[in-house]
């Protein structure tokens, strides 16, 4: 079967895993009876967008959580920039240059948009242990933050409280914060959700450029965006990667056709 042919992780390809910037190797995660990650091995190359698609509940976010360090895998390893980061926590992985955006946005909602972005710059700078100098007076932090807001198109809203943003704008804000980290790789969990068609077209153009700054592991339900953006696509079903390949290879898979191209839905 075609799907089987696309399971590319034969021994000689393992070398490639070691060369890639980010890789998971045999990651397993069980929630009670539910196998949320079933021996997941995938990787992210420099300069690419690797899209992760699959039906609701397939375990996409769970995989991202494990890569980011928020959930510990039961089994398997995670490599980032040549380091085995499996035992590092979220903050340590972030300091290595792993940036992420959340499916359900995680922001300081009482703070202004600008303050949220400045927090990113603070993290990138290293230690936030300065007690006397007003943080907003730091022109370096401010400039980085304003440039990041400009890039995602939120510059006008810098003084708005983050809690007052729409869902789509919150996603954009998360992308802006991620930008200030000058990361070596991005993990993005459904950044297009809630954006509307003009917003997602904009973000599509933006991400397309962004991959050259740092590669992106992208979870996305918006198939137009995925097909437009992805260099490679992995299909996750019941926690298992059933296929990895180029857009053309993946879009003809029966599972994908059924789910995304009008045949009956995937949910069970």
């Amino acid at each position: 079967m075609r799907a089987a042919a696309l399971l590319v992780y034969s021994p000689e390809v393992r070398q490639e895993v070691a060369d890639s910037i980010l890789a998971t190797e045999g990651v397993c995660k069980r929630f009670g009876a539910l196998l949320a990650s079933d021996n997941v091995t995938l990787d992210l190359h420099e300069g690419e967008i690797h899209a992760l698609i699959g039906p609701n509940g397939a375990g996409k976010s769970t995989l991202i959580e494990q890569i980011a360090g928020a959930i510990k895998p039961d089994k398997g390893k995670i490599y980032f920039r040549g380091h085995n980061v499996t035992k590092l926590n979220t903050a340590e992985r972030a300091r290595l240059g792993l940036a992420r955006t959340f499916q359900i946005s995680a922001l300081a909602l009482e703070d202004s948009v600008l303050q949220n972005v400045i927090l990113g710059g603070l993290g990138a700078q290293g230690r936030p242990y300065r007690f006397f100098k007003p943080v907003l007076a730091s022109s370096a932090l401010r400039e980085t933050a304003e440039a990041a807001l400009e890039r995602v198109g939120l510059a006008q809203l810098a003084r708005t409280r983050a809690g007052e943003l729409s869902h789509g704008q919150k996603r954009q804000l998360e992308v802006a914060v991620a930008l200030t980290l000058k990361p070596k790789a991005f993990l993005m969990d459904e950044p297009m959700a809630g954006l509307g068609s003009s917003g997602s077209a904009r973000l599509t153009t933006f991400l397309s450029e962004l991959r050259h700054e740092a590669p992106i592991l992208l979870i996305e339900h918006d198939m137009d965006a995925v097909f437009a953006l992805a260099d490679r696509i992995s299909v996750l079903v019941y926690g298992k990667v059933i296929a990895t390949g180029s857009v053309d290879e993946v879009r003809i898979l029966p599972e994908v056709r059924r789910a995304y191209l009008g045949d009956d839905a995937w949910d069970c």
């Binding site: 909602l109 936030p128 914060v177």
Partner: peptide
Amino acid sequence: NAARQSVRRVETVGIS
């Protein structure tokens, strides 16, 4: 202040 509002947000930017 941000840590009070969202631990994940702060950890995600590399701050413990």
